[in-house]
Amino acid sequence: MILALTALAGGLGGIARFLVDTAVNRHNRWSLPLGTFVVNATACLFLGLLTGYALGHPTWDEIYAVLGVGLLGGYSTFSTASAEAMRLLHVGRWRAALVHSGGMLIVSVATAALGLGLGNALQ
């Protein structure tokens, strides 16, 4: 049952990623793929929050699998971010690729740490 729920949550996460990415990029005036940036930063925040909370609740293993691995795994998209960085490099925009990938790494780690701290505080 957990496997089916995790797969369903992964599909829902993919739909959420598409909707957020599309909404952000529709209003994006920059030449960087901002939608992927927003998706990955929010995924790290939510996964940190979930992890911080779940660490204090060992009975949450199955819920963590469904929400963390399924929903947020389907929502986050670091493979797309890597492909976007390579696309920027391919067209000679190495500064944009560096800003995109380096900025995403820094923001994602920071939002994951923030979420973890908030999740621990909710225990």
Score class of each variant (00 low, 15 high):
Phe18Gln: 09
Ala113Asn: 02
Ser108Leu: 08
Ala23Val: 02
Gly73Lys: 03
Ala9Cys: 06
Leu88Asn: 08
Val39Asp: 02
Gly119Trp: 10
Leu122Phe: 10
Leu72Pro: 09
Gly102Trp: 12
Leu3Asp: 08
Ile15Trp: 06
Arg87Cys: 04
Ala83Pro: 02
Gly102Pro: 04
Gly73Leu: 07
Ala81Asp: 01
Ser31Ala: 14
Arg87Ala: 12
Val99Thr: 10
Thr111Tyr: 05
Tyr64Pro: 05
Asp61Tyr: 05
Ala54Arg: 03
Asp21Pro: 00
His27Tyr: 14
Ser101Glu: 08
His90Tyr: 05
Ala85Pro: 00
Gly35Ile: 01
Met86His: 03
Pro58Glu: 12
Tyr75Val: 08
Glu84Lys: 11
Ser31Cys: 07
Met104Ile: 07
Gly56Tyr: 07
Ala85Asn: 01
Ile63Lys: 10
Leu118Asn: 11
Leu118Tyr: 03
Ile2His: 09
Ala43Met: 03
Arg29Cys: 08
Thr80Trp: 06
Trp30His: 14
Leu105Ile: 14
Ile2Met: 10
Phe46Tyr: 05
Trp94Tyr: 09
Ala81Trp: 06
Pro33Cys: 12
Gly115Tyr: 06
Asp61Ala: 12
Leu3Val: 02
Val69Asp: 00
Ala16Asp: 01
Glu62His: 10
Arg95His: 08
Thr51His: 12
Arg29Gly: 09
Ala96Cys: 05
Asn28Arg: 04
Thr59Glu: 15
Ala16His: 06
Gly73Cys: 11
Thr59Phe: 13
Gly103Pro: 15
Asp61Arg: 13
Leu47Asn: 04
Leu49His: 08
Leu32Val: 13
Ile2Cys: 07
Val91Ala: 10
Ala54Cys: 07
Ala7Pro: 01
Leu98Asn: 08
Trp60Pro: 01
Asn40Gly: 14
Met86Cys: 12
Gly11Asp: 04
Leu88His: 07
Ser76His: 01
Ala65Trp: 01
Gly119Leu: 03
Gly14Ser: 12
Gly117Ala: 04
Phe37Cys: 10
His57Glu: 06
Arg87Thr: 14
Ala121Ile: 00
Trp30Cys: 03
Ala7Asn: 03
Ala96Pro: 05
Leu50Arg: 11
His57Ala: 08
Ser108Tyr: 03
Ile15Asp: 07
Ala81Met: 14
Ala96Glu: 13
Thr111Arg: 11
Gly70Leu: 00
Ala23Gln: 07
Ala112Gly: 13
Thr22Tyr: 12
Pro33Arg: 08
Gly13Ile: 00
Gly115Trp: 00
Leu88Ile: 04
Ser76Gly: 06
Thr42Phe: 02
Met86Leu: 06
Phe18Trp: 13
Trp60Asn: 02
His100Thr: 09
Asn40Met: 05
Tyr75Ser: 02
Pro33Trp: 09
Leu34Val: 15
Phe18Ile: 08
Ala97Leu: 05
Pro33Thr: 01
Asp21Ala: 06
His57Gln: 14
Gly73His: 11
Leu12Arg: 03
Leu116Arg: 02
Val20Asp: 09
Cys44Tyr: 00
Leu67Glu: 04
Gly48Phe: 02
Arg93Cys: 01
Gly119Val: 03
Val24Ser: 02
Arg87Trp: 04
Leu72Gly: 01
Met104Lys: 02
Leu49Asp: 07
Leu116Ile: 05
Phe18Met: 10
